[in-house]
Amino acid sequence: MKDDMEEKVDQLVNYIMKNCLWQFNSRAWDRENQNEGILKRTMQVLCDEPVEKDTPAGKYYWAEAVYLARLYKSEFKWINDMSKEEIKVLIKKLKEKIDYLTISGSLNEELKNPLY
């Protein structure tokens, strides 16, 4: 049996895998940047923390994060009842799972190709 937190992480993972494309850049280093850049900001948005968006990349990650956070709050109402600390744990676990699915556990043999 999965515990409650795992269930919740699964729901968030599933949403990303069904609806988003940013987690599937073609190379491992880009996937790391995308997952980190977007999910960190998603956490910051959900926790009402200041978000770095001054660089073009930061601004892009922020746009994805704002939108993801909004959808999470409307699709998964339980997230609105969570404390900031709980949200941080939740997103940390979410990122671990997404990193596993798209990077460390990925069977995609092109991820390590040094060129685009």
């Binding site: 494309l21 073609s26 990349a57 892009y60 685009y116």
Partner: peptide, 20 residues
């Protein structure tokens, strides 16, 4: 066409947004 987006991101710092 992701190759050119990746190169434009690397060379000119233009972010890549994948859409449907």
């Amino acid at each position: 066409a992701e190759y050119i987006c990746n190169e434009l991101r690397k060379r000119y710092g233009i972010p890549r947004m994948d859409i449907d």
